[in-house]
Design a binder for these strands. Structure first.
Length: 651
RNA sequence: GCCGACAUAGCUCAGUGGUAGAGCAGCUGUUUCGUAAACAGCAGGUCCUCGGUUCAAAUCCGAGUGUCGGCUCCA
């Protein structure tokens, strides 16, 4: 074994150092400032502790607080510091896992009673003590008996230990009084953590398995600077202000009422306007692109969902059966539909189909009902009554790729171009409980990927994330503050056509089986509108705004003129209101601003005399523009027609 | 469904065992106003529901319902 090893730095220079030299020593040799800023090191692409001895030739990159990877190391160490504190305050706590996550970290504990908010305060204070002590994070590689001995009182760690293969290195990390079974790496010492906050505690199943015991998870966030921490906490605050449940109430868009039941949405007039506009938009686009409209029943004999395979798969998430109508056999049961696919399959099979009929594209904006678990419901984003902009395309296998390509095109047109949303694509492959054979699945998965590649769309793979009947392309978008939402979906299905024995007659005069593509552009109107509320923070673009113009007469003298203007605008298709309440102009302007009405048309004596309006733009402050009432109408129409996202930017 | 917290006027919230409160909104009146809150008055309550403890419960206890934060799930 060589005594001297060669370390290659990112700039290509090399250093010869004794074998076993840790990265910290090399950083110190490069410069004291680098050594001080160093958090961890990247050794041949792998993140290592600064103190870990390097045994052979390697490429080395010193990581400082400027590297994203270093933030994960810090957060992982923060989780250990949290566990260190918890173990001091609650010596009987068993430890589970404590990884870094997006924006922070958590640690799971098995404790006799859940943590209270007061506990969190005490734990945070204890963490400060651990940080002040600046215990070094010491790595040790141990054999299995030693590890079993160290963790003899931690059943969760022993379980994890038992899963490690015999060829795997078992490493433990110690910081002061705390020892953890951990792969690492960590920051040099507990004193490296300076800017953090514990956020909340919640139950979480051990190993994410609902059949196992529930642990208590503490979430926290950690950053390299006070500024970053403040910015993150501020962003959480901003997100709360945009919450569609809050805005939905403030802007009177929708409600969910206990008298009717959880997860069932009432669309109030303003919210219904948005839903109506989106439904119309997608229906118009469907019809313009070769789809046919259908309407199908909301309840069905449950046998239909036995044939489709949905009932056995999703039995607990469907509403229970209803008894048969008088005159039917006693054992007939009805169900409210949880989805439309079998209905559309029946429209397909209601007559003979020729290859000349294909592709047959059936679309329906339809309500379906799913008995989602109570704990999963969330405003409009997770509901029990869903309105889907659903469609099913029946086509030959040869046509499928083109059809998927066209679906991707429609998503691009309606979601990306119309709303300026960034899209991310994910191909979800065969799940464990799939129907059908492997070869068919691979064929279907390849087909989806080819369509994406042809459209030049990069995508990621969600292995095992597909529906039981086929793989899918899930499309996610990023909202105004960077959060990711699941929106459109395109799914390929070989199973339902077989289960419903769908056929068409080919050019060869022989029966053939079509394939089926399920697709939704908005997904559900509930979720999409909920996302849009948060994306726009309630300030919708003109074309989508429930109220587009508020006409404000300054005094009673102008009230009739204002009402006449409203009538004229409404006739032209503009959603206009008059606010002639007995309140000051300032008050009414404030009210319209808070309702996020895009335009106010103020009419005083001057405007009344000259046939003009003083236009105030939402969010633009006192800046106003005097234009003729007719010119303003033209401007509104142009801006609505262009569906522009920016007020005042038509065409 | 699981763990925890919460539920008071239309909304946001105060009220730790002794006669239920504020701000905003609403209604009425005065004011007729030039770009983000005029003034005054009035009205508004099954303190989520049911049960228990107590001389006395919004307040303490139990169950249920709903909501919120997570977990699990999401055709």
């Amino acid at each position: 074994m060589a005594d001297t090893i060669t370390i290659t730095l990112p700039d290509g220079t090399t250093k010869a150092v004794p074998a076993g030299t840790p990265a910290r020593t090399i950083a110190e040799a490069i410069g004291p400032r680098l050594a001080k800023a160093a958090v961890a090191a990247r050794i041949d692409g792998e993140i290592w502790d600064l103190a870990r001895p390097i045994r052979g030739d390697a490429r080395l990159e010193v990581l400082t607080d400027r590297d994203a990877a270093a933030l994960d190391v810090l957060r992982h160490s923060a989780a250990h510091i949290l566990a260190t504190a918890v173990r001091q305050l609650f010596p009987e706590a068993h430890i589970g896992f404590g990884p870094p996550i997006q924006d922070g970290f958590y640690y799971d504990f098995e404790v006799p009673r859940p943590f209270t908010p007061d506990d969190l305060t005490a734990i945070e204070a204890k963490m400060q003590e651990v940080i002040a002590a600046d215990y070094p994070f010491a790595r040790e590689e141990v054999d299995r008996p030693t590890a079993e001995q160290r963790f003899r009182d931690d059943p969760l760690k022993l379980e994890r230990l038992a899963e490690l293969g015999d060829d795997e290195t078992i490493s433990v990390y110690t910081d002061g009084p705390f020892v953890d079974l951990c792969r690492g790496p960590h920051v040099p010492g507990t004193g490296n953590l300076k800017f953090f906050k514990l956020l909340h505690a919640a139950g979480a199943y051990w190993r994410g398995d609902e059949r196992r015991q529930m642990l208590q998870r503490i979430y926290g966030t950690a950053w390299f600077s006070q500024k970053d921490l403040d910015a993150y906490l501020h962003q959480l605050e901003e997100a709360r202000k945009r919450d569609h449940r809050v805005l939905g109430k403030q802007l009177d868009l929708f409600s969910i009422q206990e008298a009717v039941g959880p997860g069932l949405v009432f669309w109030h007039p303003r919210g219904a306007t948005i839903k109506w506009l989106l439904s119309r938009l997608v229906e118009d686009d469907n019809v313009a692109n070769g789809y046919d409209l259908v309407y199908t029943p909301n309840i069905t004999r449950e046998e239909l969902f036995r044939i489709s395979g949905h009932l056995p798969h999703y039995a607990e998430a469907q509403y229970p059966p209803m008894a048969a109508a008088a005159g039917e056999a006693d054992d007939v049961r009805y169900r409210v539909k949880p989805m439309n696919c079998p209905m559309h399959a029946l429209v397909y099979s209601s007559r003979q189909r020729s290859f000349r009929d294909l592709p047959l594209r059936l679309s329906e904006v339809a309500n379906v009902y799913r008995n989602e678990k109570s704990g999963t419901l969330h405003g409009m984003l997770r509901v029990r009554g869903l309105c889907m902009d659903d469609a099913h395309i029946f086509c030959t296998l040869d046509q499928a790729e083109d059809e998927i390509f066209l679906c991707l095109d429609q998503v691009d047109r309606l979601v990306r171009q119309t709303f300026g949303l960034d899209l991310e694509f994910e191909v979800s492959t065969a799940p464990a409980d799939k129907l059908g054979d492997d070869a068919t699945w691979r064929q279907a998965e390849a087909l989806l990927q080819r369509a994406l590649e042809r459209k030049g769309i990069p995508f990621t793979i969600d292995a095992g994330g597909g529906a039981f009947y086929g793989p899918k392309i899930d499309i996610k978008f990023k909202d105004a503050i960077g959060r990711i939402w699941q929106g459109p979906t395109i799914q390929l299905d070989f199973q339902l056509p077989a289960r419903f024995e769908l056929e068409y007659t080919g050019a060869d005069n022989q029966p053939h089986r079509p394939v089926m593509i399920h697709r939704a552009i908005w997904g559900t109107l509930e979720r999409f509108v909920g996302c849009l509320i948060e994306h726009f923070a309630g300030a919708f673009p003109l074309w989508l705004a429930p109220v587009q113009v508020r006409v404000l007469p300054i005094t009673d003298v102008q009230a009739d003129t204002a009402r006449a203007l409203r009538a004229q605008y409404r006739k032209a298709g503009i959603r206009a209101e008059v606010d002639d309440r007995n309140d000051t102009l300032n008050y009414r302007i404030r009210d319209a601003e808070m309702l996020k009405v895009p335009y106010m048309a103020v009419i005083g004596q001057r405007e009344m005399d000259q046939g003009t309006v003083a236009v105030r733009v939402r969010g633009a402050g006192r800046k106003q523009e005097i234009v003729s009432a007719d010119a303003f109408l033209d401007r509104l129409r142009a801006e609505i027609a262009s569906r522009t996202l920016v007020l005042g930017a038509s065409a």
